[in-house]
Design a binder for these strands. Sequence first.
DNA 1: CTGAAAGCGCTTACAG
DNA 2: CTGAAAGCGCTTACAG
Lengths: 338, 338
Amino acid sequence: MKIVTIRDVAKAAGVSISTVSRVLNERQDVDPNTRARVEATVRKLNYIRNQSASNLKQQSKSCVGVILSGRRNAFLTDLAEEVMEAGHGSGFTFIMDIIDEKANQLLAARKLYMEYRLQGVIILGANLEGREEEVKKLELPQVYATIDAGFLGSSHISSVSIDHHAAGFEAASRLLQLGHRRIALLGYFSRGQDSTGARLHGAVAAMREAGIPYDESLFTEVNFTMPSAYMNVKRMLAEGRRFTALFAASDIMAIGAIRALHEQGLRVPDDVSVIGFDGIELGSFLAPSLTSVRQPTSLIAQESVRLMRELIETNQSRHVQVPYDWLPGETTALAKEA
Amino acid sequence: MKIVTIRDVAKAAGVSISTVSRVLNERQDVDPNTRARVEATVRKLNYIRNQSASNLKQQSKSCVGVILSGRRNAFLTDLAEEVMEAGHGSGFTFIMDIIDEKANQLLAARKLYMEYRLQGVIILGANLEGREEEVKKLELPQVYATIDAGFLGSSHISSVSIDHHAAGFEAASRLLQLGHRRIALLGYFSRGQDSTGARLHGAVAAMREAGIPYDESLFTEVNFTMPSAYMNVKRMLAEGRRFTALFAASDIMAIGAIRALHEQGLRVPDDVSVIGFDGIELGSFLAPSLTSVRQPTSLIAQESVRLMRELIETNQSRHVQVPYDWLPGETTALAKEA
DNA sequence: CTGAAAGCGCTTACAG
DNA sequence: CTGAAAGCGCTTACAG
């Protein structure tokens, strides 16, 4: 395939490459007639700009990196899509890097920044636990989506998230109101500086308020995949650890858990109530549909883009909290004992 | 953040940038001592190569594009991941473009090719129906995964796929053996040059062989999303179009269909048997688990990479067929009437 | 409003 | 085995 360069376009249109470049970059200081002629030539020759060459020079372009931790996390991939959509509308160009869930997001962000000369990086679903110093040393505009990074106190870092602790508190409260006393918890159980830990800590707080002490035997550590949730719940059941309700820190984990319950002959919600987290599309198409806590994907995406713009244009750091929704479903019911 | 360039590395290591470049590109004509010194400097300075600059020059690099049609298609996103994995091991660099399901893959391929000076493009989940000319005009090495592009007879095009027609035939045969006579079909119904059409045509052929003529009222056109399958099956049921089995051209569609059946009070598989297609991970975690036809993701991924290599290195075009697996599940049962 | 020229950070013949 | 130099295709002050 013949490669058409800006030089070919310039020659064919009878102008200099500077002028073609101006037209391509939609600068206003071009004569309308010239512009029209160049545009026609671009179309006729099927010219497509070489991104590498363009990026090499153009440092001021609003090219932003998006780090997606874990491609299997339906919530995050949805969020990534919405971020790109929200950004395209307002002139951002994105370059996305999908990394392993367990990979270091900060290293990935740094690498992407260097490789493509970005203006900043939006990091989806990060775990900042114990990485305060590392994050602060990364001196580039960062926006963390789904986690509150305010505690870092960094001037080049913004974030947008729901109140994970409150959401976890609400989920557990709903189960308590239905009469459940033995509630299993699925997820990571960190100190709570990350979103997942905060959800579980919130749930534990609700239980404690209801006079139910934390029962370690009802917690099982699970990474954010269906197989992991499935295996761990299966093991819990095999070990005779019984419960009438289960709160999973993600919908995907809830699905794996439900399968394990199903194989054990336990029915959802008749024998065990289940609440997930995130509110992914799939949840509402399951039978029974999944009860969950919805994170407002579009809103988080829009805020991420807005925060990135503020960080780039006015050097302003903010930490935004957005509301979550309770998502009623068919996997929760009154506890049998009640 | 300070940006470290190849010049900085050269200065710090006391060599020329040519030498640094040689080390970075793992050329063999470098003194071991010099190499070690440069590598140490690279690490010390945390140098990361500017991809734009590198790509601008280096046309011979094995950079391959991957076009993913539709991010919501779990099978294709899995496949994409496996392709990148298979390729990294063998020295390919990938640049992925996720486009809308309805967007033109060929335009996307061309654009990606021009923007990044690729060696070729791997296209996942394409529909070639009625685009023979357009595809052939795209004079760049193309590998189509999941569809047989042999009919194009193009020397710069290879492909790898299962026999979709046979797979569809088998799915329907299984339902027929279970005594089903009224079998609903979900998907696109094209002339059969695309994978989805072939699956449905295969199913129809099986039914015809069993003496069951094609009943248009049992077919519903659905795009590859859960909501679309859900809505359309809901409509079928509302219109009183009854069936005892359903074959969906993808697992995702099967899930949407099952939800519609559930809401109508029809139980799966007691009242309606369901077979999906693809064999995505989620299927086996549903309760009941989804009966399906598995496309061998890893194998398709590996073949795609191998075919691309052959196309680039030896200019050799091939069309490979890989086997599919029958994936037994819990959504199929004997027809009630039987 | 337009063009000639410098330069972005690399890679790669070429010469030694 | 190593370095100086040309050049990849663009963008962007600068001058007019």
